[in-house]
Write a protein that binds this DNA or RNA. Sequence first.
DNA 1: ATGAAAGCGCTAACAC
DNA 2: GTGTTAGCGCTTTCAT
Lengths: 330, 330
Amino acid sequence: MTTIADVAQAAGVSISTVSYVMSGKRTISQETRERVEQAMADLSYSPQASARSLASRSTSILGLQAPIRAGVDVHVVMQIVAGALKEARLHHHDILLLTSDDAAGVERAARAGMVDGVLILDVETSDPRVGSLADLSIPSVLIGLPDTADQLICVDFDFEAAGRLAAERLAERGHRTVTLLGAPPQVQARHTSYSDRLTRGFLSRSREVGLTATVLPCPAGPGATEVVDALLAGSPETTALFVHNEAALPFIAARLLASASAAPIEIVALSPAELALHVPGVSDVIDLPAEELGAAGARTLLAAIRGERSPGPELLTPRFAHSPAEPATV
Amino acid sequence: MTTIADVAQAAGVSISTVSYVMSGKRTISQETRERVEQAMADLSYSPQASARSLASRSTSILGLQAPIRAGVDVHVVMQIVAGALKEARLHHHDILLLTSDDAAGVERAARAGMVDGVLILDVETSDPRVGSLADLSIPSVLIGLPDTADQLICVDFDFEAAGRLAAERLAERGHRTVTLLGAPPQVQARHTSYSDRLTRGFLSRSREVGLTATVLPCPAGPGATEVVDALLAGSPETTALFVHNEAALPFIAARLLASASAAPIEIVALSPAELALHVPGVSDVIDLPAEELGAAGARTLLAAIRGERSPGPELLTPRFAHSPAEPATV
DNA sequence: ATGAAAGCGCTAACAC
DNA sequence: GTGTTAGCGCTTTCAT
């Protein structure tokens, strides 16, 4: 194991000079810097994380609490995590995985000084976890938008605007009666923040533009077909669907294509673009930029750690995705 | 911030006594122990991870390199991660996420002393990452079984045995011509270890039991239906499928049910049980115990960190899953 | 059964 | 522009 002292000796400088070469916190002559860097390379030196963090009282580690729950779309969660990880690494930070559904885990990591801040996913409208966040000694960022978001830093996709956007598009297309096939029943029952907001935006804007709109929860996978069947049978005047459920989307689309009714049913989807763009029967896709959302969360957390207070919730604006065939004109 | 010194003072003992109360590494009188524990509780003391790890030269953190690649089944990966995390926490360890596809990331974390060991997922048959693992200063465990596994500790599901098991079951059921619909093309092209082994086991046992067996890669999602169509058209004598692709399974099953051919095609699936058991048209499910696999990996890594050398690769035995309706008789 | 004290490897004053 | 050194909070010999 080579230490900073070894490097200092090899370079013929003091320990602190080596430290300052690494941190850049004071000016070093070109020549000295080169000697030190050479010595570091020769000895293939890596600073010891624990020593560094003991002395500096910071770890360069972000805590991440990701959910693994019924109804949660693993694909989207993975993308958020991937985005956060990428962004964190870009800023020389690492990510410590914190057990889900466990406020104690976040507290433990914070109090042990294992992380400089925490990123929390899949926040519910009234989330029990948010209470304890306020009196942590480290900053936290929620990906989601709970009721009690007043004092908390939140980053999320603007699901409400997405709901409005979908209603507008469907109205433009001349539809009169439409249905939102949303998150799985468990998610809606938990009043997951995003599900609530999407519904609100969709219904209110539908009303404004004269659409008759209803909302139905929709299980992932094959179960979705049953919901579609029930809907078609019970409400034949429906001419379009707004689907927010990546996992159910292919099944819904396949079902509609199969049951070749007189008037085809149009589908607008809210989904990570790459998952929905090539599903046959889907005419418009509002992109859910999951990876960017994770990155934005990490970025905001890093800013908070640096002491920059962000003003209000940061909401990513929804946009329609464009297939490679019809690229956006920007 | 309360330190060990605060606790020692409050309890009227020395710092080392407090330390030994926590570690249990020497006998403490009942009375002293109680005073110390009381003091810790009163001051709500949490030991500082960095200080502890600087002094002890260990972190209680496991590095985890999980893949986020094309064709990788996110659901299975998530379950493995969840299993590893659970097991790690059970043994008072945490998990640091390491960037995928990046041997440098593992090395960096190891050399900085950030982790006590690393767990590596989705290993390919000839994985470039495994080379550098051998000369890390910390132990590593692969979930997967690469060619060059001689000196490495590996834990995996016994895909080869699973392939054999499926062939046997299909033969018992009286089939003569069968097809393995396997991992997506990208995964098979990479010669991902599990895909190779499943194929080998399935084909060799098929030969032994007199089955005519072929293997087809199969994309996830709707693309799977095309593969099924092509197969049915090109090889009408096929009477059964062995499907190893959770993401494609529902589509395959749905397609077979829809195309009501004279003789129905039987499906045996290899999948996490809870994902496949309720897909209509699937007659047998070989469970892929993803969470248990993650837990086993973590357990083995923790053992290696303690210095226990495991003899050979550890392979989880495949079993048929039983639906709630027909429970196992054990 | 308990204490005293020497590190662990680094950062950041405080010198010059 | 560079060096000296006092911690950071803990673990673990040595003592007793």
